[in-house]
Design a protein around this nucleic acid. Structure first.
Lengths: 251, 251
DNA sequence: CGGAACGTTGAGGAGAATCAATTATAGTGG
DNA sequence: CCACTATAATTGATTCTCCTCAACGTTCCG
């Protein structure tokens, strides 16, 4: 089980990876009041285009951002780990830019926009950090466009496995050699722009090559360097190379 | 020809579409000092991953954001119109999250980060507006992942033509029935995740169906409703439905 | 224990890529 | 102004990746 305080700590830590925060700013984040929600697997947490007055902080589980076609077909456009604020952007743009769906059993802490806005208004350094995390989201999106637009099934699959490995390590829910990956192959297909059948075949190839495997909710990487090469993976796009320049001077 | 003042006016107008700005905030934006650059077609303006200390405001022309594979293959992940700040995100994250390339002859106004940061620090309302525009970028990225991941060639092509139509109208460089589109079919292919050959065939189909055409630097839409239907297009993702909630109280 | 969801595998087909050649267009310098 | 060149658009033929449809095996959970 995870509680609000621990979730907020993870969130603050996530922000700190990309932004410099003062102690008082950090404390202001930890003082947020949330509403906890336990959500079963494969439920919509926020519907595509829905107007919301809170943001979803992931406590446990794996959350997918998705876009939806008029015929109901879905594309997962990003994944959120524990400690991530899945729809931070709705703070400044309340018509959620994407839907959120639980890929497994998930704990969500709803953080009211009222509080986040007050926090941002009174602590410009926090606002800056939130802005920067939205920028990181954008960078990851851009790489995902590249992934589904210009790489073949093998490469896409490897790329996603690499990203998930690094992020699992960061979120401290595994390491790049072996990490929990509690999502179905169908969801993996929605994230890579493939079909579930083809994901299955591609994973089989990676297994047969002794590069990586993914089953029963766990990914195992046998040969990291080859996985990186196959996936054309360069982690720079996740903006994890240390904090950016502080714009607002500490109070 | 376009001068710095006009470009900044367009930029301020673009921000105003999504955020409420006070007169003094607007004036602070118009007071920015820039360096102008005229750039020929098909040149890299900012290389993928390059560290920059300025952001690129598009004055004239069409700019593509791109990601690049290790083998040099490119995917255009977004397009920037006159009045757009193409790499606004580098203000808070100076290792540019994407490369910028000119799709035709382009006028760029370089805005030093030093100035933008000072502007953001002294005018929190402006910082908020910049943040919100970065969020809009993210929303558009997400839709692009959907586009290249889950739509077929016909639908992708139509969707992009729709987006470009709406944005041309907004940028006042055309209307949705007929607008300048000075990019090659090759660039169009890089934006849709297709090959130039297949883009050509798909455009021919749209032409034969009397839905839309695109040649000699101009797109013409004969049947907007059908184009929207084919492209599975819903403009909400561009966040152009009026300004978001103001977080920071005006000074 | 039974059912539902998920994973696996095969066969066949569709859509887009690739390869290749030709035509159009725009830009360049004589 | 026109030849010359490079770039872009167009079309055909062929190949291949991935999708679709279908069946069966496995795992998980009530």
């Amino acid at each position: 089980m995870i509680d609000q305080h621990l979730a907020l700590q993870k969130f603050a830590a996530r922000l700190t990876a990309r932004s410099v925060l003062t102690t008082s700013e950090r404390n202001a984040i930890l003082a947020l009041k949330t509403e906890v929600r336990i959500i079963a697997a494969h439920r919509d947490i926020v519907r595509f285009g829905e107007r919301v007055d809170y943001s979803c902080l992931v406590g446990e589980g794996l959350v997918g951002r998705y876009a939806e076609g008029l015929d109901g077909r879905r594309q997962i456009t990003g994944l959120c780990f524990p400690g991530d604020m899945a729809d931070l952007s709705s703070v400044v743009s309340p018509n959620s830019a994407w839907g959120l769906t639980s890929l497994n059993r998930t704990t969500i802490f709803r953080v009211p926009h009222v509080q986040l806005r007050k926090l941002a208004a009174t602590h410009p350094g926090v606002a800056e950090a939130l802005w920067r995390d939205c920028v990181a989201d954008g960078s990851i999106f851009s790489e995902w466009v590249m992934n589904v637009g210009r790489r073949d099934a093998m490469s896409r699959t490897a790329h996603l496995l690499c990203e998930l490995a690094i992020r699992s390590e960061r979120a401290e829910v595994g390491n790049r050699t072996s990490y929990a990956l509690q999502m179905t192959q169908g969801a993996f297909a929605d994230a890579t722009g493939l079909t579930a059948v083809h994901v299955n075949r591609t994973l089989k190839q990676l297994r047969d090559l002794s590069v990586a495997s993914f089953n029963r909710g766990r990914a195992t990487v046998y040969n990291w360097d080859r996985l990186v090469a196959i996936g054309d993976f360069d982690p720079g796009y996740m903006l994890l190379d240390g904090p950016g320049p502080r714009i607002v001077q500490p109070a």
